[in-house]
Design a protein around this nucleic acid. Structure first.
Lengths: 311, 311
DNA sequence: TGCTAAGTTTCATATTTATGAAACATTTGA
DNA sequence: TCAAATGTTTCATAAATATGAAACTTAGCA
């Protein structure tokens, strides 16, 4: 039976075709997929056609009239996502093997910490290098959720994030603090004068730009009932939104200082609207960190003597 | 970085190498894997070598001295099993799509039912064909566990098995009965005379050949405290064991009749040791069967009017 | 010590796959 | 109605992959 013979060939060679198909679906057509895949439309067309032949299914209707998945195409697309996830899982497993073998420290940290005077991360890395000169270091910058997920998934061995809602699957190591204040920029009604800084209701009246994921930023803005009208997923984006003169927003003092010195931002001097963040290193609770990772954690602690060890 | 470039290529082409590697591991070396893979040892050697190069890992030690996985090799082997399972899952999904699309009835049944006069399965299939002439039929014969698992996994749409321990994930449709008796063959001490058939202890004194998986056979033999000294996984194997003249064993009367008529077996005439089995069609509880499958189930019911519908 | 078994490496060949160019088909929108 | 956009098919070429044969290496066993 021809179908079975063709299906028998599936999986060793057709994954590339499946990846092409997935790109076509996600781009909504072959023309757009050309940019994504960086191969010609005729090649893409042939790959999708070949995949249809191999699977014995019509996956989509496409042409000048537009692109639409068939019901079978949708099912194959869904199955492809699961398969690609498994492939990524395999790759991740092998990556992890390598890290364990080659002694690579994989670190993910939150953005905009380099300018924080309380952060001695650079000292910790220096000490770690002295302790383990042969170890390689891989450093990533991501948002809080990505870092947490990545630590849990073994993509990162250590994460450094502003501590917020804790998870029992993670261990936290407090490191340094960060002071957060509300800022405004020229063009904002509150910029010109400081008289209303102490007027809580006046502050609440204005549009606020805040982070769109769970974080100390979100917690505080909810607590202070600030009216979020712009959502950002990066502090750089918050800074840009503040700079627009239409929003107030929280920024770390050390980060905002450069803007203040240039007259590009002004701090809202109201102690009720300020908050402090504690940055912590996170590792998976189980399995316990390797010796190399523990060496780095020790370096972190030594570099931040003021931090309070948790109970 | 070379490693990343190579790893980037992983998964579209290397799966065949991973399959080869898996076969080598499971065969305990390349020589034995030749038979399994049906390719030459030099090709196998090169594939494993290529895989090691691509992954940047030494997977095994092999040669005249023997075969042994490294720790990394074991991890890659484990990861490969997960990957292959995902590939099989994909294929299974596509297969299921096909069945839904082409109107294929996929049926799995227990062996040795064709000779049972109470079974009107052939009539049901005829009626089904009349009702759905374009539907294709795929028929499998397996043991009870395989059928149950296959129905749950969507490999089979309908299973027909002797009902035993029920599962809430399955719906049961009683169809027909089967009478089971103990049999012995020439050469067995109980074959020559029937006087001791009614002597329960005499029967228990003899070695018994029974099925090695949960089934009415296992339930009854446990209840009657028969001493199982040979384990089979198919009734044909039980028949062979009985024919050896060393064991008594349960067989369906309709199946054993041919042997009895040839003087090759004798029934143990003891009502306490007899039992009846009820065959039932099983389908997954959810999702509900398709119209085509329901059509077949209706045909089954019409073909077995004596069966009792469950409460 | 020498033979055998298991595995490695190189060479040559065949097959498969990928790709862009060019020409064509269909549908939509101006 | 015609041009443009999207996709299809064929051709020619290049690259990648798979394979067995042959020669070689290493280790174990008689």
């Amino acid at each position: 039976m021809v179908r079975k013979a063709l299906l028998g060939q599936l999986s060793d060679l057709d994954i590339r075709l499946l990846r092409v198909f997935r790109a076509v679906v996600e781009c909504g057509g072959m023309a757009a997929a050309e940019l994504e895949l960086n191969i010609g439309r005729s090649t893409i067309s042939r790959h999708v056609k070949d995949l249809e032949t191999r699977l014995g299914l019509t996956l989509c209707h496409r042409g000048r009239g537009g692109f639409a998945l068939t019901a079978e195409g949708q099912a194959v697309y869904d199955a492809t996502l699961r398969l690609v996830a498994a492939l990524d899982g395999f790759r991740s497993d092998v990556d992890d093997l390598h890290r364990r073998l080659t002694g690579t420290l994989v670190l993910a940290l939150f953005d905009k910490t380099v300018s924080n005077p309380a952060s001695h991360l650079h000292d910790a890395l220096g000490a770690f290098h002295d302790a383990a000169p042969d170890a390689a270091i891989e450093m990533h910058v991501h948002g809080i959720n990505t870092i947490e997920r990545g630590v849990l998934d073994n993509q990162f061995q250590v994460g450094i994030i502003p501590a917020h809602r804790p998870s029992s699957a993670l261990d936290y190591l407090p490191l340094f603090g960060e002071h957060m204040d509300l800022y405004v920029a020229p063009g904002h009604p509150l910029f010109a004068t400081g008289e209303s800084d102490n007027d809580d209701e006046a502050i609440r009246r204005h549009a606020y730009a805040g982070l769109g994921y769970h974080s100390p930023n979100m917690e505080k803005s909810h607590a202070m009932r600030l009216r979020r009208q712009a959502t950002a997923y990066d502090q750089e984006a918050v800074a840009i939104l503040v700079r627009s003169g239409r929003y107030l927003g929280y920024l770390p003092d050390h980060y905002a200082r450069a803007f203040v010195e240039r007259g590009q931002m002004r701090r809202i001097d109201n102690p009720r609207f300020q908050y402090d963040v504690e940055f912590a290193a996170i590792v998976r609770h189980a399995p316990k960190p390797s010796r190399m990772v523990q060496t780095f954690l020790d370096s972190l602690v030594k570099a931040h003597p003021q931090a309070v060890m948790p109970g």
